[in-house]
Design a protein around this nucleic acid. Sequence first.
DNA 1: GCTGGATAGTTGCATACGCAACAAGAAGAC
DNA 2: GTCTTCTTGTTGCGTATGCAACTATCCAGC
Lengths: 165, 165
Amino acid sequence: MKPPSPPEAHLEAWRRYYVSFWRIFAAIEADLQAAGLPSLSWYDALYELYLAPGRHLRMSALARSALLSRSGLTRLVDRLEQEKLIERKSCPKDGRVQHAMLTDRGVETLRKIWPVYRAGIAKYFAAHLTEAEAKEFARVVGKIAAAMQPAQSGDTAGASCKPAR
Amino acid sequence: MKPPSPPEAHLEAWRRYYVSFWRIFAAIEADLQAAGLPSLSWYDALYELYLAPGRHLRMSALARSALLSRSGLTRLVDRLEQEKLIERKSCPKDGRVQHAMLTDRGVETLRKIWPVYRAGIAKYFAAHLTEAEAKEFARVVGKIAAAMQPAQSGDTAGASCKPAR
DNA sequence: GCTGGATAGTTGCATACGCAACAAGAAGAC
DNA sequence: GTCTTCTTGTTGCGTATGCAACTATCCAGC
């Protein structure tokens, strides 16, 4: 019973995946910072709320969507609330639960970030793919993302890991 | 002159790319931590040194390879040196330059990390791709990685961004 | 040789993150 | 009703990161 050993093509694919992701990510973050805008962490959280029905989610659900630990999310929500981009709402049905709710100011911020983010995606990612390549890429990566679905549970369970800046 | 707007297929590809990467990354980091092994940051740096001729690189070169800022690398090298996985060597030709050199203990550590890392790649990434898909994937992602090559220069220039854990 | 500017790496400080411990509340057993 | 156990979010602490400022060194012009 040796550990599964991916064939060479798969390893090379991973290596390039890894490197290109970090580079694109760093480049987009740099663009956002240069434009005086918040980082992708903020965007991710705000956008998940924007998509949610009623523009609010409970903390733990948001943590999963935003790929953060519960404690990481608490702090992120602290910062977002300080900037008045979201509001905390206690749940009347369950006293333990807090909901994060997107404010109008939050929506406005999303709208400011998106053009820069979109331009970054175009420049650093999309520019290198034909339409057909993008479709095939989306299909394959979709399989991976779908398979990794849960990864949830508490602080623990490695549900997390986001960059510092 | 409106900003370049990637077509829908490209945006969807990016979205899935982003999500799947974080999930795979988090899962692999969790596996490494569960095995009591250092994180991928350490692996990346050690592996770059392993590949380098003479198993050493100057700090700034290593920072680029390891996708860290110069200051981030200084601290990472501090930690690696404390664990005796690398050694700092001053360059006799240029007093400003420091070289990080992989020790035998460092090689040994690499060899301990790799099976766990490889198994993670297999489980979370490779398992979902056929050989043909992996080859196509590598080709396309390779184009992206190649285009993003430099991103270098000092602390600044967004050459960086690595996760906190 | 000297001097002024460029370059390499380090350090102070601020920030963002995870984990473990915790507090508040809910839900089930009885 | 009360007690135990589980769940949810928060807090203390340690750690990893980037940026800006700094030091030491090199190099080009003179």
